[in-house]
Amino acid sequence: MDVREDDLVLRPDFRAGSAILAAIAVAAAAIVAAILIGDAPTVFAPIVGGVFAVLFLFVLGSLLRARIVLTQHELVLRGPFSAQHKPRAHIAEVIRARITAPRGATNGNLFVLDESRSLLLRIPADAYRRGDLDLLVTTLDVPCSGPSSPINPKKFAETYPGILTKVEQHPYRLALATAAIIVTTLLAVLLVSLAAT
């Protein structure tokens, strides 16, 4: 995709991204140091370090490659590995919302909808500066609405049906299902090991 001078190009907020990178580095150093100092086998230190290194590189790649590009003809949401292209003529509405997650965290979102109120793009608003997203919404020149305060996924889905996935609407069900699978797997391994002895 060629970016011209008159295109609006928004990049992630590097200050917020730098804080995430610093947190990953500190967590990695603390956990690896605890492994090396403590009683855990030292073989875990490079494994944990490797996992954190991959996570660090992924976040860094996202900061460097991710962007939103608005041209005369399309809106492009570019991630670290792919890009979503949507015709600008199909954009009819934008919804801004902070969706609450378990434990009280909120995730900012910009939902870009077509004329039938179907989701075209979901932009992770927390990754970008608010002023940049204000400029995007103003430049799109379509109606913009949304709840004025953070909203839970179920209530958001009732107000704006068809935008959130079923998993997002019921996060506790997913957590319970995951926990049940882990417990069942551990019990199966325990029973097999007891039967083998």
Rank of each mutant, 00 (worst) to 15 (best):
F58I: 14
A177C: 01
L121H: 00
Q84A: 12
P143R: 09
G146S: 10
P80K: 09
F14D: 08
A177T: 01
V183M: 04
V167K: 03
H90G: 05
F44Q: 07
Y160M: 09
A30V: 15
V43Q: 05
A101V: 11
E158D: 12
V51R: 04
A27G: 08
M1N: 03
A29T: 13
L121S: 02
R88K: 12
D7S: 10
H170L: 02
S116A: 15
S149V: 15
L110I: 12
L164D: 00
A196S: 11
E115H: 14
A28Q: 14
I20M: 06
N152H: 14
P124R: 04
I37A: 11
E168M: 09
Y172H: 11
R173L: 08
D114E: 06
T178K: 01
A175G: 04
T42Y: 12
L119Y: 03
L174Y: 02
D39P: 11
M1R: 05
D141E: 13
L110T: 04
T138D: 05
G79L: 05
P41V: 10
K166Y: 00
A105P: 03
P102A: 09
I35A: 08
K86A: 15
R4H: 12
P143H: 06
L77G: 01
E158Q: 13
A97P: 04
A28M: 14
G50M: 05
